[in-house]
């Protein structure tokens, strides 16, 4: 599954069926996933699905031209970056300038040379892979591989507005490791890191496929549970708590017994007008759990 995700998908938008057949034969032969569409409108529909890494766009196409499509793609900031190669029989300097100004990364004149095209695609793949790596570094926590604080807050905002739109409940769990400072002070930070990684693994095995988790602070995590009733929220939180407390964590310093405190809330339970409010109520519930002696769940 991982190798499939890493594979760059290439879109060929070309109305000339001879040209698109030749392109497809070469590019498939070089091991890329290829999708072919005959006009600009269909190409745009594919773009909106946000799956394309490299696009080979013919300049003259029905519905939307390659150059118009370039501008449209570059103006759309919502999706990931697409590496665009304009492919056309237009080869005057002013045409090349126009294509590149519209947002194309590369320009190839028809009839194309397969060796040159292969090299250009390789460049495109290198850029796309690099951007993907940077994107991952920007949204994931380096140690635990869950979302970082900025990304999980972005997701919370997105889910909050989705829940409002669809009139569905949205739940959150704030989870904090009990006495984690002691682990770091006694056994050192590398052991503390081992604990954090194992805690995340024990949390995620109890989450549903569409729940999201992020590292909110040092030893504090937030879990977002869309379409979740308050009853089910309590059950999931307790399952997570028990999964952590019932079995000691194996570390390089030996087994360590750890517990977590959880503060939960659901829009089913509160009148939340913003994500700020959801965080505040979850935080308060977590504070209560700590005051109640830790290793427990409180719903706010």
């Amino acid at each position: 599954m991982k190798s499939k995700q890493n594979k760059v998908k290439i879109l060929i938008a070309e109305d000339d069926r001879i040209s698109s057949k030749i392109l497809k034969k070469h590019i498939t032969g070089w091991g890329y996933d290829v999708l072919v569409v005959p006009d600009g409108k269909k190409a745009w529909q594919v773009f909106e699905k946000n799956e394309i890494g490299i696009a080979l766009l013919d300049w003259m196409m029905p519905e939307i031209t390659g150059v118009e499509l370039c501008r449209k793609i570059r103006n759309d900031k919502s999706g990931k970056y697409t590496y665009i190669i304009l492919l056309t029989a237009k080869n005057k300097q002013k045409d090349i300038n126009k294509g590149l100004t519209a947002g194309a990364d590369e320009y190839l004149t028809k009839p194309f040379n397969p060796i040159e095209l292969k090299a250009r695609l390789k460049t495109g793949k290198r850029i796309i892979d690099l951007l993907e790596k940077l994107h991952k570094q920007a949204i994931y926590d380096g140690l635990t591989k869950v979302f970082n604080r900025r990304e999980i807050m972005r997701i919370l905002n997105e889910e909050f507005y989705r829940a409002q739109r669809t009139n569905q409940p949205l739940s959150t769990i704030m989870l904090d490791l009990d006495h984690f400072k002691k682990v770091n002070d006694t056994y050192g930070h590398p052991v503390g890191d081992e604990v954090l990684v194992e805690i995340v693994s024990r949390i995620t095995t109890k989450m549903r496929a569409y729940d999201k988790i992020g590292r909110y602070g040092g030893e504090e995590f937030i879990i977002i549970l869309p379409h979740n009733s308050i009853k089910s929220l309590k059950k999931i939180a307790e399952r997570i708590r028990i999964n952590i407390s019932q079995k000691s964590i194996q570390t390089s310093a030996g087994p360590l017994q750890l517990t977590v405190s959880l503060g939960c809330t659901s829009t089913e339970n509160i009148e939340a007008s913003s994500t700020k409010m959801i965080i505040k109520i979850s935080d308060e519930a977590l504070y209560k759990a700590k005051n109640n002696g830790r290793n427990c769940t409180v719903v706010g």
């Binding site: 109305d15 000339d16 001879i18 040209s19 030749i22 003259m60 029989a89 028809k110 009839p111």
Partner: peptide, 15 residues
Amino acid sequence: QETGHYLKGSAANLS
């Protein structure tokens, strides 16, 4: 112009 352009592209691809 457009049809000429289209035929030019196909013919060029096949030399």
